[in-house]
Design a protein around this nucleic acid. Structure first.
Length: 424
RNA sequence: GGAGAAAUGGCCGAGUGGUCGAAGGCGCACGCCUGGAAAGUGUGUAUACCUCACAAGGGUAUCGAGGGUUCGAAUCCCUCUUUCUCCGCCA
């Protein structure tokens, strides 16, 4: 979330910038500023009263020790009144802080100055494209047909075991999944990321830290009996590794990568691009995460974008990179680049990666801070993450784009991992 | 799942009702010492909030979390969480 300080010092600017995200903030901002005023005056008064109480307690103690019981009892009575007052002030403070927090959490992150205005996907800006769109024979079919033809992905079996959106990968299909995961992880490790295998379920605090809770609760599978959430992305557990931490500036950047399955309820997206691998409830993804010094976070963002581009290129997929407009950006992001690959048989661009700088927005929620050499006060770090990459749509594009009369040709870079060069 | 023990600052560890944000040690930072280093030695070393100039200074809170008793709690009581040991179960 945004810090109070930013809102206090840049009230009008905050309101203006959030309009880029199509968010009308004026009302909330005003309420926040009012509540903060109230909070401070309550705190101030309560502290003074508490100080008085503390002083009196010491006096009472010394009265008792010197046997002046009368004086002590007199003070005790006076004490009771102030105590009542402090108690009610404490309650007021708690409730004010709660209200304040509820409002703060409702404000999205400020978009970076370079973020274009826009309503939705059509207003995103193409910053780069590459790769060649292959020309397929007339008999070319979509990946769901290929999956069936070569018996590598079984959607119906997934239906039987679990439900729609939970496919079963079989034979060379399963091996190919594993190959992609290993390949992506190895590339991340070479690029300096430390591999972690995090839990696939997280608690509420973690969900809050990265911004999934409270707003996007409906997107996650909730294990109510233990109050845990299945992760929608490795971003959640991996970024939360650093929750409540104070790092040293010299430790930056922290670079972590993780492969995890991801679970998404995708509530409300029925019938919309859900065919085949396009949108699943469970899918595999390799994620890269960086915790970085605020002055260097945009360098890291570029580095991450380049890393992802390298992956897509190496798979020979036609791709384009989009800079998301304000209307299409996530709540928590300051700047996001999306990667899309072209899936030829469907004739569709499929989003396979989203690389974002959250600046201090998540860090503020996470209490993820760092100390500058020789400085006393901790400052908020910047967090970034990106998919590198999400598997299903990559797989969809690979299957469709690489189909030949003889079978599906495996890209060179994956062959050491698959052990075969064609699916036939 | 059952029984018992425990949870203190970056770490170890003292502290069973008052002057304890907390002894001592280690670590770390800076200084002295040294040709350099080690040893030695001196000083410093949590976080949030309020006041305030995001300075200095002052105040409040925090000894797993939350509540309670008390004029006063790290210290007593209750609830929860976590860890360890033993038993059961088990990949």
């Amino acid at each position: 979330m945004l810090t109070l300080k930013i809102i206090q010092e840049n009230r009008d600017f905050v309101i203006e910038r959030l309009k880029i995200k199509n968010f009308q903030a004026e009302n909330i901002v005003n309420q926040i500023l009012d509540l903060d005023l109230k909070r401070r005056s309550t705190q101030n008064s309560m502290d003074n009263n508490q100080a008085e109480l503390n002083k009196m307690s010491k006096e009472i103690g010394s009265f008792f020790q010197s046997g002046k019981v009368e004086e002590a009892n007199l003070l005790k009575e006076k004490n009771t009144q102030i105590k009542e007052l402090v108690k009610s002030q404490a309650e007021e403070l708690t409730s004010t802080e709660k209200q304040l927090n509820e409002l703060l959490v409702q404000l999205p992150n400020l978009p970076h100055e370079s973020v274009p205005a826009g309503k939705g996907v059509d207003d995103n800006i193409k910053v780069k494209s590459g790769g060649k769109i292959p020309v397929l024979s007339k008999s070319a079919v979509a990946h769901w047909d290929l999956a069936k033809k070569y018996d590598i992905i079984d959607f119906e079996l997934g239906n039987k075991l679990t439900g729609a959106g939970f496919p079963v990968y079989k034979g060379k299909g399963a091996k190919l999944q594993r190959a992609l995961i290993s390949y992506f992880l190895d590339k991340a490790i070479v690029a300096g990321y430390t591999e972690v295998m995090p839990p696939l379920m997280v608690n509420e605090d973690s969900g809050f830290g990265t911004g999934q809770l409270p707003d996007k609760e409906g997107q996650m599978y909730h294990v109510t009996i233990d109050n845990l959430y299945l992760i929608p992305t490795a971003e959640v557990p991996v970024t939360n590794i650093f929750r409540d931490e104070i790092l040293q500036a010299r430790d930056f950047p922290k670079k972590m990568t993780a492969y995890t399955p991801c679970f998404r309820r995708e509530a409300g997206s029925y019938g919309k691009d859900v065919r085949g691998l396009n949108r699943l409830h469970q899918f595999d993804k390799v994620e890269i995460v960086q915790i970085q010094h605020p002055e260097k976070s945009y360098e890291s963002l570029t580095e991450m974008v380049n890393h992802v581009e390298g992956l897509v290129k190496s798979l020979n997929l036609p791709y384009r990179i989009l800079k998301l407009c304000g209307g299409d950006m996530s709540f928590t992001s300051a700047l996001t680049y999306d990667f899309e690959v072209f899936s030829v048989a469907q004739e569709k661009w499929l989003e396979v990666s989203s690389v974002s700088n959250f600046e201090s927005y998540q860090a503020n929620r996470l209490k993820l801070r760092y100390k500058e050499e020789g400085e006393k006060k901790p400052l908020l770090a910047h967090t970034l993450n990106g998919s590198a990459l999400a598997l299903p749509r990559i797989l969809a594009a690979l299957l469709e784009n690489n189909q030949t009369d003889k079978g599906i040709v495996i890209p060179e870079v994956l062959r050491p991992y698959t052990g075969f060069d064609i699916i036939d």
